[in-house]
């Protein structure tokens, strides 16, 4: 079994994994970082979005071995101590989540949007979220959350 080494949430980690191990499996099963979720098997739902070297990636569509040497951030790595990241706080303030299952992927995806577009319009946000499905919120409050989070990230 190949050995894979990477940095996850600032911590160096290494393990022997089967070559077919997906990044999301590695995160959830080896590292027990269960905040990253699996909602589908066709790379559609976005519940598994994490950041690899600062960019949002669907961790169900990447092999763990492909992220050798990479810097990975998951939802667990966003808050510092008990202080939420501005995007997390915006979701809380704007009721941008209900069951919470799609939420980690939504937040990780939203942060990457704002990294690319500091002042996204409602349409920008709705189009950006094409790879993230939510069944609870009807997206209304997710869009509001991301608008607020984008502002807060600039502040």
């Amino acid at each position: 079994m190949p050995t894979v080494s990477m940095t996850v949430n600032g911590k160096a980690v290494s393990a022997d994994v089967e070559p077919r191990t997906l990044l999301v499996q590695y995160l959830r099963e080896n590292l027990r970082l269960t905040g990253t979720h699996v909602g589908c098997d066709t790379s559609q739902c976005g519940a598994c979005v994490v950041h690899v070297n600062g960019k949002s990636v669907k961790s169900c569509t990447v092999l763990a071995v492909q992220t050798e040497g990479a810097d990975v951030t998951t939802i667990e790595g966003l808050a510092t101590n008990s202080e939420l990241h501005p995007m997390q706080e915006a979701f809380r303030e704007n009721h941008g989540l209900q069951c919470g299952f799609c939420t980690p992927g939504m937040v990780m995806s939203a942060i990457d949007l704002v990294q690319n577009n500091t002042n996204p319009s409602e349409q920008d946000i709705r189009e950006w979220l094409e790879g993230n499905i939510c069944r609870c919120t009807g997206y209304h409050n997710i869009v509001k959350s991301i608008e607020a989070g984008a502002k807060a990230m600039q502040g």
Partner: peptide
């Protein structure tokens, strides 16, 4: 009132069935 359950969901600390081992 802002939801009391949100902190755990937003920080990846929810405890769903597949998270249980």
């Amino acid at each position: 009132v802002k939801r009391v359950e949100d902190f755990r969901f937003l920080t990846g600390k929810g405890n769903y069935t597949d998270d249980i081992n």
